[in-house]
Amino acid sequence: MRLARRSSLPGFSLTLGITLTWLSLIVLLPLAALTLRPWELGIAGLWHSLTEPRVLAALRLSFGAATLAAAINVPLGLLIAWVMVRYRFPGRGLADSIIDMPLALPTAVAGISLTALFAPKGWIGALLTPLGIKVAYTPLGVLVALIFVGLPFVVRMLEPIILDLPADAEEAAATLGATRLQTLWRVTLPALAPTLLAGFGAALARGVGEYGSVIFIAGNMPMVSEIAPLLIVIRLEQLDYAGAAALGVAMLLLSFAILLVINRLQRWLIRT
């Protein structure tokens, strides 16, 4: 009850109770089931199941493409968020709603549309093919899909922070002799750094788990353009439940480790 004393709002025990119950039912219980399942295979079986070259290739693609997509989405999202917050232009309201579209669209629809666009005969694909660039049915296609679904996270996380940036700090920098580039680099970006990192984390997490929009454009060639979540589905279809769970746990641990590092980094950035 020591925690409750400082709160001026009622209902502490009730809300905490609901929170913990909900968290247990919705998050912890399924996770527990997931982590218990693979042990049916035994340690050696588990190791074998996770070190198959096909599995390693899929994990590498999933995490590699998600990291790259997040890294691309951070500057891109910053630019878009900046324009949306700082400038007034006709059609801004419309542009603002379009940003959320990748979130609202069923991911399969997004995947099919992207495939249609980037297929060798598609609007964009037809332009890229003469240049020797193949997007659809390659790892590049995975990247494109992940950039598409991750962008709104970065934009929406940055917008309120940019809105909240004190304009007078930028003006102070100007009166102190800083060029606009110096102001951006030394004043504005450092103030946004923790949020940029958080946006990177959100886009990355989304990218690692993304399934629907990727499988259509990826082509799903084993060892080349097959993502880890798809491999899980394939194992499930083969009734290899323990193998699917093993891969799931591996992804879970990897994601958790990455998010933990990002979180630490973010705290360190905020403190300094």
Partner: peptide, 29 residues
């Protein structure tokens, strides 16, 4: 331009750079 006027301006709400130490704030210019 403002940055070449050599004018010291103290803002009403100080406009300090929140992510910089006091010393770095003062050294900025």
């Amino acid at each position: 331009p403002a940055r070449k006027r050599g004018i010291g301006l103290v803002f009403q709400h100080y406009a300090l750079f929140r992510h910089m130490s006091v010393a770095r704030n003062v050294a900025f210019g």
